[in-house]
Simulated assay, not measured.
Amino acid sequence: MAKTTISVALCTYNGEKYLAKQLDSILSQENPVDEIVVCDDGSTDNTQSILQDYQARFPELFRIFINEKNLGYVANFEKALSLCTGDLIFLCDQDDVWHQDKVKFILHYFKENPLIGVAAHNLDLIGTYDGKKTFWELKNFHSETKPSNHELLQYILINGNIFPGMSLAIRKKTLHDYLPLQKIDSILIHDYELIIKALRDEKFGLIPKNLGAYRQHDQQSIGFRENEKSQTSELTKIKLRSEHYLRLQKYTTAFNLNPKIAADYRQEIKDKYSLFLKEFSFPNRMVVHLKNKYYYKILHF
């Protein structure tokens, strides 16, 4: 049987602080990778010098591309992914850490699950919750329930992506089917889009094992910060849900998704809005509703 080749798609931008730790963790894998494709998006710090140093030490491994102009986070990742030649491609951020058995474990998983095109693993946390929670626990996601692809698709469409790019691996053939990215909006970044497509096609797999460490810090380009959570009024929540319903309709059309997911979400919003209106006396109920619909224009359902 032919050897499965492994590519790493790594994007950098002003990542000098943590980049070396990330690269060292890739180079320390029990199952070595075959290539590390790096697309730098015009860093102005010491990032490019660090990359050049590693390339000089491992010329057969590193393929480095410096963008002439800044592409932005999503387009840069799309470029890096498209340049990978391996059978199995690992997405990689510039500021995290891989556990030594990550490649070996994921390679075995894909061999045991030939129908899976994209897989995500759990993560330890570096930062506020270091050693206290995993990434999935922080997101209140429980893999032991063994959700189906349909259930996961509904969950992430309503609640947002809970599988960051640095936890993903994708088969080359699957990637070929899913590129170019459609880039529907700024919320639907590259990893989110790939996951939606894989879930739609019943090709997504979960690996309930911590195979890397996700770093929480203020300089993240994209990421989850627990302190960004805040209490909001019920009306604000309804407004946000209403706006999200419009996005969900867009995603449903763009990715040919089951329309029932959006329809069920619309009904859920309507039910919560009805409960909200019941807090007002009957004479005021219609006034509040008309203001919300026509003056504030926050109702899209």
Results as ranks from 00 to 15, higher is better:
N122P: 06
E78Q: 11
K132A: 13
D53S: 14
E78V: 05
L71T: 15
I126H: 12
N159A: 08
R63A: 08
N140T: 09
C84P: 02
D53C: 02
I156P: 01
T85G: 12
E60D: 13
N113K: 06
N149W: 08
F163I: 11
I64G: 06
N159Y: 10
F77R: 15
F77W: 06
F110S: 00
L83T: 09
F58D: 08
E144N: 08
S82K: 07
K133P: 06
Q100G: 10
N159G: 07
A119K: 03
I158G: 12
N67S: 13
G86E: 04
P147H: 05
R63E: 13
F110V: 11
L83Y: 08
T134L: 14
H108P: 02
H150L: 14
V118F: 03
G165T: 08
N70I: 13
L123D: 04
E112S: 13
L71S: 15
E137A: 10
N113Y: 12
D95P: 03
N122R: 03
D124W: 06
K139V: 05
N113T: 03
Q52M: 09
L125E: 10
G160H: 03
L88C: 03
D101P: 00
L81Q: 02
L125Y: 04
L138Y: 06
F58E: 10
L153P: 03
I116R: 03
V74D: 15
L153R: 02
Y155L: 08
R63K: 10
I156Y: 11
L83A: 11
E112I: 01
L157M: 13
K133S: 07
K146V: 15
N161G: 12
V103C: 05
D93H: 09
N140C: 12
E112G: 01
K132R: 14
L115K: 15
W98H: 09
W98D: 06
G165N: 08
